[in-house]
Simulated assay, not measured.
Amino acid sequence: MRVEIDGVCVTLGGREVVSGASLVVEPGEVVGLVGPNGSGKSSLLRTLYRAVRPSSGTVRVDGDDVLALGPREAARRVAVMLQDPRTEFDLDVHETVLLGRGPHHASFGRDTAEDLAIVDEAMRRTEVDDLADRMVATLSGGQRQRVMLARALAQRSPVLVLDEPSNHLDVSHQHDLMSTVRGLGRTVIAALHDLNLAAQYCDRVVVLADGRVVADGPPGVVLTPDLVRATFAVDVRVLGDPPVFAFRPLPRATARTSDRTTAPRAESTHP
């Protein structure tokens, strides 16, 4: 399912945090949003799942403005995994994952055998099936992240939005999660801090700085040392293809100068 973000601006607390962002994500494409803290990644994602209304611009899924969709229809099209979810702490893991089937039911509809099979599959894929009877409140942060991914997978929406999905996960589970997401065949938009994960698992990266899209294209083309240095205020060495990044801090004087410098604008390689 195609996602179009067209000239979106977001204003929060009287300050514009996203400024005229535009991008297109084709069906089945995995796109990573990268940028420093405060660059507008999460705010832009929130317009896609209707948690934030743009001050201008339009977000369309399968050609329809998401704000014109009813809540149930919007959830059937877009599933979300948040970095710090408001977890249903009084539910066990199976009950929590089963919530992902809610958009496919009429009000107070019963869970079907198909629902239960979908939930079981989602829990196996995220390796939380052995936690089915555990209360979510008793889980570690990483375990809760995997439960939230299972719930999003159980929703079976063609578009999947991930806001810092590797938060709380160890290195092995970070790669397991991104490999699972990569293999779904769904349209995926993920806000990521880790450039190595973005480079390995994303078809494209979109770089944001100060609320603006400054680059858009394949990771090996877009994530150049100059752009990474200007955007993230770190020195970087790039190895291999797909690229692997090794970082070290800039000298303090250079870092202070970089903080006052806008990241170089890269030409989009995406049509």
Rank of each mutant, 00 (worst) to 15 (best):
V128A: 08
L162G: 00
N196L: 12
M135S: 12
R151H: 03
I189V: 15
V214K: 07
G142W: 06
V136H: 01
A198S: 04
R76C: 06
E114M: 05
T138W: 09
T187I: 12
L82I: 00
L160A: 11
D216E: 12
M81N: 00
R77N: 03
H104I: 08
A154F: 12
E88Q: 14
V205P: 03
G183F: 10
F89T: 12
D115L: 04
V207L: 14
T112I: 09
M135D: 04
D115V: 07
R101Q: 07
G109S: 13
N196W: 08
M148Y: 03
R77K: 15
E121A: 09
V159H: 08
G211P: 05
A122V: 09
D133A: 15
T180I: 14
S172G: 13
T138L: 12
E114A: 14
G102T: 14
M148E: 07
A132M: 04
H105I: 11
G217W: 10
D129N: 11
V159Y: 09
G185V: 08
Q174N: 02
T187M: 05
S172N: 12
T180L: 15
G100P: 05
V159S: 00
S157A: 15
L139I: 08
S157Y: 07
D120Y: 02
T126Q: 02
M178F: 15
L153K: 02
V214S: 01
V97N: 01
D129V: 03
H168A: 11
D216H: 13
T180P: 00
L162R: 04
R101K: 10
H94C: 06
L160C: 09
T96Y: 07
M123G: 03
R134W: 08
A117F: 04
Q174K: 13
T126W: 10
S140G: 10
D194I: 08
S107L: 15
C202S: 15
H193V: 09
G185N: 08
T138M: 06
V80H: 03
A137E: 11
P103W: 07
V181S: 00
D133N: 12
A198P: 05
A215K: 04
L91M: 15
D133P: 03
V93T: 10
D92T: 03
A190E: 01
M135F: 14
L139Q: 07
Q143L: 05
D92G: 00
S157G: 08
R144F: 03
G109M: 12
L162M: 10
M148W: 12
F108L: 15
L184F: 05
A215E: 06
A117H: 08
D129T: 00
H175C: 00
E114F: 01
S157K: 05
Q145I: 00
R182H: 14
A117G: 07
L99R: 13
Y201K: 04
F89Y: 14
T112G: 07
N167D: 02
R144Q: 11
T180N: 01
H104R: 13
L177K: 01
S166R: 00
T96I: 10
H193L: 09
R146W: 03
A75R: 07
R125N: 10
Q200V: 08
Q143M: 08
V188K: 05
G185F: 10
V207M: 14
L116G: 04
V213F: 13
V80G: 01
A106L: 13
